[in-house]
Nucleic acid binder design. Structure first.
Lengths: 292, 292
DNA sequence: TTTTATTTTTGTCCTAGACAAATGTTGACA
DNA sequence: TGTCAACATTTGTCTAGGACAAAAATAAAA
């Protein structure tokens, strides 16, 4: 479809997530995108420019910087997305299933895995694995956003119903679970909740994006022993460290702070913050807490 | 006493849905809001200004024009909304329960309601009601963010497990459910999914924030008959309308588009878009679709 | 190697002007 | 009295560059 449709700057912001100010300053500095203008001098972006913007976005997520990317053309960009890609031929099984767009099949597949392996193994092995594969496929542009959404929703739904069906006697500690502002991904937290539930721990899950002062208030109101934060790779490292030190200062020392996810930096974590670097560590850390 | 917290212009845009350009031009023209400035001359909006902005927004949704509203003070504005009648003195029961910060109690309360009333009544009456009460309490600062989060999470969890436990024979139509970029609230969509499930409709739920072009691709991939969008009051009206017209152009006419939630404007919906103005309308609209 | 200081890059804010799209008002005419 | 066109006002969003802090990269020191 060789449609000559053009998009105004607001539409481009909606579709790509790149702000208007940023689009204008990119044009000024890097000479891309260079939209044509309508009769009133307003920018009109072409379909092609939109596509290139999406490529740029994906590469920026991988750590590349806009200044370098803008100079390249589309073919160079898509080449960059696929270099060092060993697994380009054999997609993971989960990707193939997602590509069929058959929700019932997907549900059945995940459910079977869960039943077969049990919740603990399902979370620590299968899910952890699939998540990285899907993150990878998405970065390479081999998986559409909506396909990733479909996966997340299905997993979340599965975990939630598993957790709520799990009757258990609640024992200490009391755990409060959430993510920091700007972090929308709740899947990691939910996986954490599932693993904790297997250890008779009942979480207060606040979902995503709770402001720091609110987290403080929530921990105190719920008299939580442990605050558990999850944070994905894209989360700004600096912001994370600042929030963590602020939280550490606000909360009494008796409250432990655990932080997990791909976004946890290797070094320089403030004192009094415990990094959970793999889901298998969770049970161990919990045991350590119980042994005081 | 967090009265001394201020918000930068980006935070105000996120919270109220009023764009940065609009905020600046309102200040220039009407003298409201008049934020103080930080050391670098950047705007800092007070809590009060935020509250007044939210009132203004609600009244604008009712058809009032900004020029008139800005001149009025808060008491005059809330008088126009005639909201003070119910909730100012006697908090709703749900608010009281939330304030106790006892998750098990909250869960029990909601669960009892669900069992007692059945899913349909629970969603269309109790939940719809509680949601507005909580939205109200939040706007007035009578409910902390973390308390609202705790409520949402609990309800979402409850609905999800109800839906997943509901075995039913799937019949047409095929419905795809999501929210537009910038709209994070998935509760409305989930309520919708629950009601549809009661009518043997199985939804493909993509969760929150699917870009317009991705929605188009998803509808086609899943061969959905109906696209169902939900959108809360704070969502920018203009952005909604533009996204809707874009979607209407992208999708074939045979695909119906339904949009529900507090954010649906009273007037000027593009042709080919069906507004669902109350949850009770959903079953009726569905019936109408089946009768072709 | 790790830590600290310096430079470059990059996103977001600023002002103030312009103008079209939406809405309100007026007046002519049936 | 109601309808429709013409005109007036209101309102949101665009424009251009300039400015500057936060983030990232690089260099220097421990």
């Amino acid at each position: 479809m060789e449609k000559n449709t053009y998009f105004n700057i607001a539409a481009v912001e909606r579709d790509t997530g790149v702000g208007k100010d940023t689009l204008r300053v990119w044009e000024r500095r890097y000479g891309f995108p260079t939209p044509i203008r309508d009769v009133h001098g307003e920018r009109l972006y072409s379909q092609m420019e939109l596509e290139k913007l999406r490529l740029v976005q994906r590469l920026m997520n991988q750590g590349h910087r806009p200044g370098k990317l803008m100079a390249l053309d589309m073919s160079a960009l898509s080449l960059m997305l696929n270099v060092q890609d060993v697994s380009i031929e054999n997609d993971a099984e989960i990707i193939a299933i997602l590509k069929k767009h058959h929700t019932a099949d997907l549900h059945r597949y995940l459910n079977n895995l869960l039943i077969e392996q049990g919740l603990a193994r399902f979370v620590t092995e299968s899910l952890a694995n699939m998540n990285t594969q899907i993150g990878d496929a998405w970065m390479r542009g081999r998986l559409a956003i909506f396909e990733e959404h479909a996966y997340s929703e299905q997993v979340i739904s599965l975990l939630r119903s598993a957790i709520s069906q799990m009757g258990f006697e609640v024992v200490a500690p009391s755990v409060l679970l959430t993510t920091l502002p700007g972090e929308e991904h709740t899947l990691g937290g939910l996986m954490c909740e599932a693993l904790l539930a297997l250890n008779q721990v009942s979480c207060v899950n606040l979902g995503a994006q709770t402001p720091v002062v609110e987290i403080n208030a929530a921990v105190r109101a719920h008299q939580a022993d442990i605050l558990c934060l999850s944070c994905s790779a894209a989360y700004p490292k600096n912001q994370l460290l600042q929030s963590l030190t602020e939280l550490r200062n606000l909360l009494p020392e008796s409250v432990h702070i655990w932080v997990g996810g791909q976004g946890v930096p290797r070094t320089k974590l403030p004192v009094g913050i415990k990094a959970i670097r793999a889901f298998t560590e969770l049970a161990i850390t919990l045991e350590a807490w119980r042994d005081k």
